[in-house]
Amino acid sequence: MWKTARIGGLGALALILVLAPLGFPNAYFYDIAVKALFNAVVCIGLNLLIGYGGQISLGHAGFFALGAYGSAILTVTYKLPALPAMLLSALGVGVLAYLIGRPILRLKGHYLAMATLGIGIIIHIVLKTESGLTGGPDGMGVDPFSVMGFTMMGDRMWYWAAAALLVLAVWLSLNLIDSPVGRALRAVHGSEVGAEVVGVDTSSYKVMVFVVSAVFASLIGSLFAHKDGFITPDIGSFFRSVEFVVMVVLGGMASTFGSVVGAIILTLLPQVLTVVEDYEAMVFGGIMMGTMIFLPKGLLPSLVAGLRKRGGAAQ
C-alpha cells in the first residue's frame, strides 16, 4: 500500500516535471523553475531534519553558501574541475556539520534554533570578511558547470538536470523515511525520551540527518553558483535560512512532497507579487501568517486531509 503510493507519487512528480515546460514561453520561466527545483531539493533535506527529526535549523543557508563558495573558490582560484570541487565542498560541509552537530543537537527547541542561527551567521560573516578568498560582500564570479568537456549552458539544460535531481532526492528521501532509520527518527520526533528508553540511539540519528540535510544544501549551493555564475555572501544570510524553514513548514512538515510544494510556491510567490508593487511585503507576510493559521499542518497535508474528508463524505 505504502509502496504503491510512493511509486505513484514519484511518477506523478516526474510527469509534472516533464509536462511543465510546455507552459514555459521563455528562458525566464526556466530560470525560475530551476530555482524552485533547487530550493525543493534543499527543503527535502531540511524536512528530514525538521519534519522527521523534529530539530529546527535556522542556519542551513550557511551550508548552502559554503557549498557555493567551496565550488566557486576551488574551480576559479584553484582550477579544479567542477565535479570534484562540488563533491569536495560537500564532503567539507558534511564533516563540518558532523563536528558541530554532535554538541549542538543536544540542545532543544529554541536553544537549538539559536545555536544553528549563530552558526549560519558566523559562516556569513566569514564569507563577507575574507574578501581575498571570497571577493567580499560584492561577491565573485563563477564559471559554468562542465564535466569532461561537456558544459551546462542555458536555463533549459539546467531545468532537466534540476528536475532529475529532484526526482532522485524525493526517491532517496522516501526510502530513508521508510527505512529503520526513518522509523527511529519518527520515534525521536514523537518523544525523544521515549525513543531512548526503547533503545534508540537518538543523538547519532539526529546527527546523521543533520549531516545529510547539510550535504543536500551544499550540493545545491554548488550547482546554484555554477548556474547563476555570480554569488555573494547574501545567499548565506539569516533571511535565506529562514526562507528554507518557511518553505518546509508552509508546504507541510514531515511530508516530502509537501516540502516540494512549499519550495515551489515560495519561489514563485515573489515573482507573482510584483504586481502588487509596494504592498509586496505586506501581502507576502499576510500569506505566510494566513496559511499557518488556517492550515497549521501545512499546505499539502491539509489539502490531502481535506480531499480525504470530502471523498469519505461522498461515499
Partner: peptide, 24 residues
C-alpha cells in the same frame, strides 16, 4: 496524488497570469 498535479497546474497558471500581463 491528483492533488499534486492540481497544484502544479494551478501554480503554473498563477505565474503565467502574473507574467503575461506585462508581455502583450
Amino acid at each position: 496524488m491528483r492533488s499534486l498535479a492540481k497544484w502544479g497546474v494551478a501554480a503554473c497558471a498563477v505565474v503565467a497570469a502574473g507574467v503575461f500581463a506585462g508581455a502583450a
